[in-house]
Design a protein around this nucleic acid. Structure first.
Lengths: 340, 340
DNA sequence: TTGAAAGCGTTACCAC
DNA sequence: GTGGTAACGCTTTCAA
């Protein structure tokens, strides 16, 4: 393994000078710089990142904490992060989170500059204790798709998204609109589903429509679960004419159940999802599009900026635009509801 | 930042002893061990991984080189890798590859123990020069979904998969079976598509069926491209009665084109894909299932084993089983072909 | 503009 | 069993 000392010897200079060349310090004469570069070339020298990191107190690594398995949308966001980091000099370390223990473990261990120079936390609202530790750790943090006091965040206006979806169905003439989303007390504390539900409830209320208890269902974020929950809803004698699902994954489960129940979408049932993941365009799903890839990129860029500026970002909040994408799973209700 | 020296001072022992406790060396008395552990607890000490890595010559990190953007299947494989590494003590560094330059850069830079203790390379056949460098670098490597002389690999029998798909269509009575796959000269050298094509051609030949030139189409691995290529095929007056696509992504493009052309699947056209990614079950796609998640896990476990054994794996090849999953996009051809 | 040398926080070897 | 002390390979200050 060729070290900086080898290069120094080969070039006939001191190790310090080689280091200066490596970190292109201006205070090196052109001639020595050339000599050093030549030696580096000849010896095929590459600096040891560990040694460099130990010496400088940082490790050229960005940690990305992500519930990699739970949400389909996380992958698309991660792609955006990867894209942004591609051109940077930082390596990306992936920390998967499936349980709160998992999460807190990462949060504690990662708040040190020798672990990661910056942290990007996806969809996970840090619990207060972790948040304090994170905020005061000196390691720049960006929250993506969650919020925390004192920490910058790239967020989606999920409440507004819920309104958008619901209003769309109302505009089509629906009055019995159901909602299907995550369990409110999901272990990792994902909040997007309940925010979307809030937008839904609010919009229903302003339209003077009551939400029947049986028209709101919750379950783990899995297609099969959404399918089963929907089956129950559709089995009732007077079923809703439209369902707003808190995510595309769940909306696909809804569609599956509708198909299984012999219903034609959108004639017998309208369905709206949320996210616009890749499958959705194929499935012809009407959905609230949020720029997943872009949000990942934006968050990563934010982190890079704060790293470059060597100063923490404030509590700034960056919000990306939502857009209703109308495809072929929504239409006016075929029959006027019994209440009419 | 609390260091090993602080712990040593607090416990009234030498730094070496603390280190021994950390790496649970047997040669520490129970009493001192307890004292040291207490000090660690009180001071909330965590070893600096950089320093540890520098000293020991490895960094507790595994590099995963993956064409993250190009193939949907890569994500599912990556999930398997993440799952396997979750319980290990290794961090996962993600290296995205989109171009050959990208790829070679990673291959050169990652063949050092101070970068990664092991390397998992997904779907990328290393060029000979890189391969030599990799094989002799001393860094354990596992290839996933590609092969290389002297390097262990977890692979899929793509040729057999191609046979499976084609035979299924033949068994249903099809004779005009088309193939749609990646460009043979794709820049990163993915080989799965052409292997699947080989299985297809071989099976057609043994069945005594000629493959018409226009019945084999190639293009970049993108759904929209597959759709357009299919449109061209279906526009011809005597079109094939079945299409075998080299991946589910491409098969979805085929389905889209069929729908756009007003054809009913499987009545007017049978479609078989490859991979069985998550979407496929939703789309009801008949496909050749390969255990993507499982392959990722297997490859990662292999790497961990070789790391634990501190000896390089041989050129062993690990092959996972394929399985034809018949869903609703294949059926007997409606009309007997013109040749009949 | 440059070299020498002192860290950075561990581990591992060598005495005791 | 345990403490002292070289490494590990780099950056950075201090002198010159």
């Amino acid at each position: 393994m060729v070290t900086i000392a080898d290069v120094a010897a080969h070039a006939g200079v001191g190790a310090g000078t080689v280091s200066r060349v490596l970190n292109d310090s201006p205070q090196v004469s052109e001639s020595t710089r050339a000599r050093v570069l030549a030696a580096i070339e000849v010896l095929d020298y590459r600096p040891n990142p560990l040694a460099r990191g130990l010496s400088r107190g940082r490790c050229q690594t960005l940690g990305v904490v992500v519930p990699f398995f739970t949400h389909a949308s996380a992958v698309e966001r991660l792609r955006g992060v990867v894209a942004a980091l591609d051109k940077s000099l930082y390596d990306l370390v992936l920390f998967n989170v499936e349980s709160p223990v998992h999460r807190d473990e990462h949060f504690t261990t990662l708040t040190r500059r020798d672990r990661a120079d910056g942290l990007l936390i996806m969809s996970l609202p840090p619990p207060p204790a972790s948040l304090h530790r994170l905020a005061t750790s000196g390691v720049p943090i960006v929250l993506l798709d969650s919020r925390g006091a004192g920490v910058p965040a790239v967020v989606t206006d999920d409440v507004e998204g819920g309104r958008l979806a619901t209003r769309h169905l109302l505009d089509l003439g629906h009055e019995r609109i159901a909602f299907l989303g995550d369990e409110p007390g999901n272990p990792l504390g994902f909040t997007s589903s309940s925010a979307r539900e809030a937008g839904y409830r609010e919009t229903m209320e302003s339209a003077g429509l009551a939400v029947r208890p049986g028209d709101v269902r919750h379950g783990p974020h899995v297609r099969a679960v959404a399918r089963d929950l929907t089956r129950a809803m559709l089995a009732a004698p007077d079923r809703p004419t439209a369902i707003f699902a808190a995510s595309d994954t769940q909306a696909l489960g809804v569609l599956e159940a509708a198909r299984a129940a012999g219903l034609t979408v959108p004639r017998d049932l309208s369905v709206v999802g949320f996210d616009d993941v890749e499958v959705s365009s194929y499935a012809g799903l009407t959905t609230v599009r949020q720029p997943l890839f872009e949000s990942g990129r934006r968050a990563a860029e934010l982190l890079l900026e704060s790293l470059a500026a060597e100063e923490p970002l404030g509590e700034a909040e960056y919000q990306l635009d939502l857009e209703l994408v109308v495809r072929s799973t929504t239409a006016a209700p075929a029959t006027t509801p019994a209440a009419g």
